[in-house]
Design a protein around this nucleic acid. Structure first.
Lengths: 234, 234
DNA sequence: CTAATAGTGTCTCTAAGACATTATGTG
DNA sequence: CACATAATGTCTTAGAGACACTATTAG
């Protein structure tokens, strides 16, 4: 955004891309959605869904991320947020590049394999063998989600539309890696004031008292609450 | 980062820039450093220091930010962190652009006007009249700094190399906009364990008990501690 | 009935804030 | 000495965790 020099002067091209870290919870562990690359570089390798920013059709990089995610996985994520920008000469063999990374959270039900056979879910914990700097990007996304989880309602986006409080607590515990005091958890959820019981809806079928089903209040369906210190581990 | 299409296909150019939000504390209020633009667009207007990313000389966008900040203000900031990336067609009249924004914190002493006559310090509170989307960028930086201040040692970068605890507390209070309990503040600083007293150094000259001078411990000189819930307002 | 988990009441304990007291400089 | 602010000791209070007890289903 500066005037020094002539913008039309010939310079080395900068490659502008976006990458999307699509996260979901499977078997109580965070997994990232990867796709097999069809073209060079790294053809055949599993990598984050990503692509070039198209100045002629994308409004900004966020819409580019949403477009690419949809084109490649047919998924529209209810939660998509900018993570950070990764740049430099070394990260892409094609040349000096910028990748604006986004992360998305979706419930596992959205990733049913029969509907998305092209998606490979890989646990984020021992993550290795990714091309480019995709490992760094995924780790940054995981760190962000874990960090935000302790003081926000982010994890609800990993649940389906309706869920019980014990289910939601299990999601928080999976993200934070620690067990949470049940009473404290419910107190915090009550304070956050973002959930509403689904009248008459209970989780039935098991040999115990059925749990009340909840859902995000309408006002928060597409929004994230960031009330401070909402959830704390034991 | 995707292979669909040919990277050599002719596309609308994307302008790659960085902008730096240089923040400092003056008269107990956050101020941002602005420069008068020499060239179009918005020649003559006060704007953030920024410039084109140079693939031929910058290692990544962070070094580009450091380079541009130094070229334009001769300042090397001890704290420089990526803020977010702003993009789209509308933000720059020259065309579809990406700006990777960084923010820096420096003590007011570094901005002595006699050494940096080109810098205009503007209070961030009623901020208006900035070109591009620089107002959004500054507001994002201010929000980030205020948010991080409540649980980290970030504000020490707004102090000089040595400072007293009452001075540091005043900085936290200016950032958070609330007064802090003195005992709690000192307890937290003690827990953070990032400061060390400068032996024998006291702030003298006033008609009261002199305050002990402190400095960041060596290990943190260039680092940020992010211990959770470090500082809380009253 | 028992088994199992949901949901809640309440006590304890930790940590933050309020307040008072002591410490140490200047004039 | 008075006065001002630094630094610290300690009491009060709010909030988080532990734990126990009640509620409600299946079988």
């Amino acid at each position: 955004m500066q005037p020094t020099g002539n913008p039309n002067v010939s310079r080395e091209t900068i490659i502008c891309t976006v990458d999307v870290v699509l996260l979901s919870l499977k078997d109580a562990a965070l997994h990232v959605a990867l796709l097999r690359r069809e073209h060079e570089p790294f053809a055949g390798a599993l990598a984050l869904p990503g692509g070039y920013v198209r100045a002629d059709e994308d409004e900004d990089t966020e819409s580019a991320a949403a477009r690419i995610l949809f084109e490649k996985t047919a998924i529209v994520s209810p939660y998509l947020e900018q993570l950070a920008t990764f740049s430099g000469r070394a990260r892409d063999p094609r040349g000096w590049s910028i990748s604006v990374a986004y992360y998305a959270l979706v419930p596992a039900s959205l990733l049913e394999l029969e509907h998305h056979p092209e998606i490979q879910l890989l646990a984020v914990d021992p993550l290795k063998g990714l091309p480019f700097d995709h490992r760094d990007i995924v780790q940054a996304a995981v760190a962000r989600v874990r960090s935000k989880s302790s003081y926000s309602s982010l994890p609800v986006f990993l649940c389906g539309e309706q869920f019980t409080l014990p289910q939601l607590q299990a999601v928080y515990e999976a993200l934070l890696g620690e067990s949470i005091n049940k009473v404290s958890f419910r107190r915090k959820m009550d304070e956050l004031d973002i959930l509403e019981p689904v009248q008459g809806a209970r989780e039935t079928g098991r040999a115990n008292r059925p749990a009340q089903l909840y859902r995000l209040k309408q006002a928060y369906r597409k929004l994230l609450s960031t009330t401070d210190r909402a959830i704390n581990p034991d």
